[in-house]
Design a binder for these strands. Sequence first.
DNA 1: TTCTCAAAAATATGATCAAATATTTTGAAC
DNA 2: GTTCAAAATATTTGATCATATTTTTGAGAA
Lengths: 229, 229
Amino acid sequence: MEHRKVPEHEAIYLRIREMILFGVLVPGQPVTIQGLVEVLDAGTTPVREAIRRLTAEGALEAKGNRRITVPELSLTQVEELYFARLSIEPKLVQIAVPRANEELTKHLREIDNHLNAAISEGDIEGYLKYNYRFHFALYEAAGAGILLALAQSLWLRAGPSLRGVLGRYANTIQPDQHDITIRALENHDAATACRAIEDDIRQGMDQVRQVLIFGDSAAQNTVKSVLAD
Amino acid sequence: MEHRKVPEHEAIYLRIREMILFGVLVPGQPVTIQGLVEVLDAGTTPVREAIRRLTAEGALEAKGNRRITVPELSLTQVEELYFARLSIEPKLVQIAVPRANEELTKHLREIDNHLNAAISEGDIEGYLKYNYRFHFALYEAAGAGILLALAQSLWLRAGPSLRGVLGRYANTIQPDQHDITIRALENHDAATACRAIEDDIRQGMDQVRQVLIFGDSAAQNTVKSVLAD
DNA sequence: TTCTCAAAAATATGATCAAATATTTTGAAC
DNA sequence: GTTCAAAATATTTGATCATATTTTTGAGAA
């Protein structure tokens, strides 16, 4: 049995990463090395290395004065992410479609069921996790490591802010795009799959954008108006 | 005098980064922490942190067995970079054009002069450095930090392989696109500037691609045929 | 306010331990 | 006696930790 021992710095990296992706650490929150050392009961060196990695990925932000925080997105940064996600993620889907097999669609359906369950239970964290898993199970199928890494970085950047709005407007979540995506995969219909993922990205990013432009009160209405179309 | 001291790990990061970008470290080359500690005359912790950062950026590759190398690009990876660079970098130019002022174009012209001098002297390293500076002086003018970080990562990934081919075919370098770009900036002509950068990216990446497909002997001819168009 | 200084946090060093690779040794078969 | 491969050993490198040093912050005094 090949049980490769995962180095501490790798394990710590993954733990902090999840804390960022799934809402334990929120935008603007200061992150101290010492603090993480205590919370995670780890040594300073592994925590330090994990933080450097996450900073390089844009999941954390190194302020000038040796302070580190979870980034708060500005409006222009949201626009950048909007553009970048729409450039990279549909491409991953396009590559993945011809490589998709029944195993993949079955797996995606499983994840999507968990996702829907989480939504109906109002389980935000569950929603975030299964949504993440859905997208990256799909993206990984493309076998395109560089684009995948870019997508990972983009999710790490968008994740915390996305969580912020979803936490407030969980009821407006529209998982329909996932169904469409899976069906398109089964039909080897790349164009439809790409469009579904594009729409999925737009839905999420639009909410973040609306909150930034109009403040908290706006996102709800915006989403409702989209639903009414 | 406010001389904020740059932390060792930051300085080391920058040094290793340059070694990767400008050809001291070549694709496939194993990189050891201990080795860098000796070469750079540094402590293990700063080197370690710098390596984690560079690994996250794709400038280095962590093999399973705790080994680290400068990545060798596969053909599919080159295609990924091709696509990603063409997605991100022209967008940065598009954003930069309306923000460009005389100071910027003057600076770019300066860099471009150095670049041309380096080419006529057959100074590969100089070429690489000024080419890098040209692109990122332009990209930075966009004021789009996230897209800029993505572009940086893409250059770190493409750089070593690009150097490999340029080192062999320095005489085929076509810096014309830079002239076109600067003039387009002066005319606030975003479309032309974007197209020039696209062509610039294509020229470089095509050479890498050709070498990967047909081996060393092919790139020269391919470039010539492009010139003959 | 501005300055000083102590506490807290980040940074960096070097030592120690563990893991992986490289080298040598061993021993059986031919 | 030679060859080859497996075992044993040595060496290199990576991972982590404890500790010392430096930097920053922020409270309180001038």
